[in-house]
Structure formats: structure tokens, C-alpha cells
């Protein structure tokens, strides 16, 4: 254990896992609330093309290492993709569904194709698809810290406004809130979260880190604020635990983290009826004591 904590590579990895575990569920809470749980998935697919384009440009410019521009490329592509998705959603076009599907598949296929064109190997590709937290450089760490702090500042600082828009968009509009701008803020923050979390779990599992902790939390809470807090705790715990496990046992950190989170979900689902009945203290009639509106005569 001491050895793990003194390893500089592992120190960086743990710090990244901590930040991602904190930040991803924050934006995930808003996405679940507005029933856009799969948005992160879509953005992840598009981000892969960004990675590949960054790689291609880096290669052409002769940068060392080749993937210097991979993360900036992912940030740009993810933001463009997220805003495009938001525009399609806001317009409410029936063809939007198909347009999004094309965007997602195009993202993955384009990413794979361009990486091979840029001279990348399958190993490079797998790193982005499934995460490569064990190779975090100091530069990666700086980018991750900056983006995570931004995501947390926006996601927590504007919580009531973002809640209002996600909870009841019509009311938010009738209150004169800048609904369009707040929706774009959510899309952009989701995009930044995807590019940060990509490092830990990879583009294919990035959405799981945003959504599964929220799914766990909402089973045991009754308020939005507490759901977010519990989800952040779950995110941090599974990220750190998953990373620790894979330090001692050879396994994919990203996959381990996601399986741990889903395991917690199964536990919470199993324990929920027990907790609920204990909280009620046995039999409890939830109906308020009010007089009947009608007189019911015996049949």
C-alpha cells in the first residue's frame, strides 16, 4: 500500500481518479434529470474523432509525442458535438434521432480510421477506447485539474439555475431565465467532463461514470442536492477503489471502476425495500386524514 502511494505515476493516477470521480456525477445528475442519460455516450463517440484529428495534426506538424494535440482535439470535438446535439434537441425535429445516430457512429468510425491514417497503433486506440490512467503525464494532470475545477465550479455554482432548467424547462422560460444559454452550458460542461473522464475509463465507458453513481444515489435519497452529494461520493469511492484493485491485480482500471459502480447499484437496489420499511417503522399509511368527498353506502 505504502509502495502504491509513493509511486509518482500512481500518485498522478489517483489524483486524476479522485477529480473525475467528483466531477462526472455532478453533470450526470443534470443529464439523468432531463432524461439525457445517453448524451455522454454520444459525446464520447464524437470525442474519439477529435482525438484522432489532434493526433493527425500533431503527426503532420512533427510534434513529439504524436498525441500532444489529442486531448485539445477531443475537447474541441466534444464541445462541437455536444452543442450540435443540444441544437437538434431544442429544435425538437423528428429526424433528430437519426441525425444523432449518424453523428455517433460517424464519430467512432471516423476516429478509428483517422488514427490508423495518422500512424497510430491498435494499442493507442485501445488506450482511448478503454482508458489509460496508468500513463498519466504531468501535463495531462494539469489539464485534468483545470477542466475538473471548471466543471465543479459551474455544476455546483449554478446548481439552482441548472436544476430549474432541467426540472421544468417551460417554467424556466416563463421566468425569463436564459434557457438556451443554460442548455448550452450543460452541453459544454458535459463535453468537458467526457474529455476529462475519457482518460480514466475510455470513451466507451465514459457515460457510465456520469450516470451509474447518480442511479445509485437516487435510490437512497429524496432531494436533488443530496442525490448529487451521494453520487459524488460514490464516484470518488469507485474510482479510487477500482484503481487500487488494478494496482495489485492486472485488470483494466476503467472496466473495474464501472463494474464496481454497477455492483453498488445492485446492492442499493437489493437493500432499498429493507431500508424503506425500516424507515417507515413497519406499517404506515401514507394517505392524509381528510374527509371523503362522497358518501359511500354499503353495497
Amino acid at each position: 500500500m505504502i509502495e502504491m502511494l509513493t509511486d509518482p505515476l500512481m500518485q498522478r493516477a489517483l489524483l486524476v481518479a479522485l477529480l473525475v470521480g467528483l466531477a462526472a456525477p455532478v453533470i450526470g445528475t443534470y443529464l439523468v434529470q432531463r432524461r439525457l442519460s445517453l448524451l455522454g455516450d454520444g459525446i464520447g463517440h464524437v470525442a474519439l474523432t477529435g482525438v484522432a484529428l489532434g493526433w493527425l495534426v500533431g503527426n503532420a506538424a512533427g510534434l513529439v509525442p504524436q498525441d500532444t494535440l489529442a486531448i485539445p482535439g477531443a475537447v474541441v470535438a466534444a464541445i462541437l458535438g455536444a452543442v450540435a446535439i443540444e441544437v437538434v434537441r431544442a429544435k425538437g425535429r423528428t429526424s433528430g434521432d437519426v441525425a444523432l445516430a449518424l453523428l455517433f457512429y460517424g464519430g467512432i468510425a471516423g476516429g478509428v480510421l483517422i488514427i490508423s491514417l495518422a500512424g497510430g497503433s491498435n494499442a493507442n486506440l485501445v488506450g482511448y477506447l478503454f482508458g489509460s490512467i496508468s500513463t498519466v503525464s504531468t501535463q495531462d494532470l494539469v489539464v485534468t485539474v483545470a477542466l475538473s475545477v471548471l466543471v465543479l465550479a459551474v455544476g455546483l455554482g449554478l446548481r439552482t439555475a441548472l436544476f430549474a432548467v432541467c426540472h421544468d424547462e417551460e417554467f424556466a422560460r416563463a421566468a425569463g431565465l436564459p434557457v438556451g444559454a443554460l442548455n448550452v452550458v450543460i452541453a459544454v460542461v458535459a463535453a468537458l467532463t467526457v474529455t476529462v473522464a475519457m482518460r480514466v475509463v475510455g470513451v466507451l465507458l465514459v457515460s457510465a461514470l456520469m450516470i451509474v453513481p447518480v442511479a445509485v444515489a437516487q435510490m437512497v435519497t429524496s432531494s436533488f442536492r443530496r442525490t448529487m452529494a451521494v453520487a459524488m461520493t460514490v464516484g470518488v469511492v469507485v474510482c479510487l477503489a477500482g484503481l487500487t484493485i488494478t494496482y495489485f491485480h492486472d485488470a483494466s482500471p476503467g472496466a473495474t471502476i464501472v463494474v464496481l459502480a454497477i455492483g453498488l447499484y445492485a446492492l442499493a437496489a437489493a437493500a432499498r425495500p429493507l431500508v424503506a420499511s425500516a424507515r417507515r417503522g413497519g406499517t404506515h399509511d401514507p394517505h392524509p386524514e381528510l374527509p371523503d368527498d362522497v358518501v359511500v353506502e354499503a353495497p
Binding site: R35, S37, T160, H167, F171, A172, G176, Q218
Partner: peptide
């Protein structure tokens, strides 16, 4: 009733926000 639970107080609190 959306996916994430919210208390009555939280919903009412969102009513304190407006354009400015």
C-alpha cells in the same frame, strides 16, 4: 416526476430565480 428526486423546498426555491 423526473428521474432525480427533488424536495418540495428545492422546487419552490427554483422559483426565486428569474431573468436577472
Amino acid at each position: 416526476t423526473s428521474g432525480v428526486p427533488a424536495t418540495a423546498c428545492e422546487v419552490v426555491l427554483s422559483g426565486t430565480l428569474h431573468g436577472r
